[in-house]
């Protein structure tokens, strides 16, 4: 049995905003299945009593003072923009929620 279907991959691709052709979806589903069957080994040892470690360091409370420092200039901020108008980033129409 496969762990991941083509529909699953299509859903993930949508979540991740990556357009995929049907052929790519099929290919990716096969590959992911292969990878997942290898990586799901983690479940063999991950028992209830083990605390998860999300970060290698045990540091806490790293803050900075509330002090303003110079920002980029407008032209620096927009230097990489694919399109711009009037000091703003120009992007395709934003659909969906207002």
């Amino acid at each position: 049995m496969t762990a991941i279907s083509r529909e699953d991959v299509a859903h993930l691709a949508k979540l991740a905003r990556v357009e995929m052709t049907p052929v790519e979806l099929d290919h990716m589903a096969t590959e992911l299945d292969h990878i997942l069957s290898a990586v799901k080994r983690v479940q063999e040892v991950a028992t209830q009593d083990i605390q998860p470690t999300s970060h290698p360091l045990a540091m806490t409370n790293i803050f900075r003072d509330d002090v303003v420092k110079p920002s980029l200039t407008n032209s620096e901020a927009l230097s990489g923009a694919p399109a711009k108008i009037d000091g703003r980033f120009k992007v395709p129409q934003i659909l969906g929620e207002e």
Binding site: F63, S71, N74, A77, L78, R88
Partner: peptide, 29 residues
Amino acid sequence: SCATEFGAEPNTQTCPVCLGLPGALPVVN
């Protein structure tokens, strides 16, 4: 550390961090 003041010219209170430029990292106020 960008200023929060209201009403500034567009994109003049931005930096690599708040523009989400590749490589930038957050530090908590």
